[in-house]
Measured scan of single mutants.
Amino acid sequence: AVCQRCQARFSPAERIVNSNGELYHEHCFVCAQCFRPFPEGLFYEFEGRKYCEHDFQML
């Protein structure tokens, strides 16, 4: 399997985020606008991209 964002493979010891069947490295699972991790894992999706609450409100 490969990361949805960076397309790199996962190492066996690595923590992986699964979002609706899409797999991400922990450091790749970030807001599409500000590139920060999601507070408490909370995000909003718009047109296939994931956003933090602040950036989602700015759309």
Rank of each mutant, 00 (worst) to 15 (best):
L42M: 13
R5W: 07
Q7N: 01
L59K: 14
F35N: 15
F38C: 07
C52W: 00
C6Q: 00
S11K: 11
A32M: 09
C31E: 02
P12Q: 09
G21K: 11
F10S: 03
C34I: 02
Y44W: 08
G41K: 05
P39W: 07
E40I: 01
L23C: 07
R36F: 05
Q7Y: 09
E22Q: 15
E26Q: 10
C31R: 01
F46I: 03
H25C: 13
F35W: 10
R15T: 13
A8Y: 11
Y44P: 00
Q4H: 13
D55I: 00
C3A: 02
M58I: 09
F46T: 04
N20I: 03
A32D: 11
H25F: 00
R36Y: 03
A32L: 05
G48P: 02
H25W: 02
V17W: 03
Y24S: 06
Q33L: 07
E26C: 03
R49V: 09
Y51T: 01
N18A: 06
G21W: 01
E14F: 02
A8R: 15
L23V: 10
F46M: 06
V2C: 05
F38A: 05
G48A: 07
G41C: 07
V30S: 09
F29T: 12
F35M: 11
F56G: 05
Q33E: 13
G21N: 10
E45V: 10
P37A: 07
L59S: 05
P12I: 13
P39F: 02
A1R: 02
Y24L: 10
A1E: 15
Y44M: 09
A13N: 15
M58F: 15
F29D: 04
F43W: 15
F43I: 05
C52F: 00
L23W: 08
L59D: 01
R9M: 10
V30Q: 05
E40V: 05
Y24D: 03
G21F: 04
L59R: 09
P37C: 07
F56I: 10
C3K: 00
I16N: 07
N20E: 05
Y24M: 12
K50P: 07
R36I: 06
L42K: 13
Q33M: 10
S11I: 06
Y44V: 09
V17G: 04
L42I: 14
F38S: 03
L23S: 12
R5P: 02
N18D: 10
H25N: 04
G48R: 10
P37S: 11
E53S: 08
Y51G: 00
F56H: 08
L59H: 15
H54Y: 10
V2A: 03
N20T: 10
A32Y: 15
Q7A: 13
H27N: 03
M58T: 15
R36L: 07
R36V: 04
Q4C: 14
H27T: 06
R5E: 13
F56R: 04
Y44K: 11
R49A: 10
A1I: 14
V30E: 05
R5T: 14
F35I: 12
F29M: 14
A13D: 15
Q57W: 05
R15S: 14
Q33P: 02
G48L: 04
E22T: 12
A13F: 01
A13M: 06
D55T: 02
V17P: 01
G41T: 05
E47R: 08
E22K: 12
A1Q: 05
C52K: 02
R49T: 10
V2P: 05
C6M: 04
F10L: 13
C34N: 01
A1T: 15
C6S: 01
K50G: 06
E40H: 13
H25T: 01
F10R: 02
E47V: 08
M58A: 12
L59A: 13
C34P: 03
A8L: 14
Y51L: 15
K50N: 15
M58P: 10
F35K: 15
C34W: 00
A1K: 14
L23M: 14
A32R: 06
C3I: 00
E47G: 10
A8F: 11
V17T: 11
G48S: 11
G48Q: 06
R5Q: 14
Q4N: 15
F29V: 10
C6G: 01
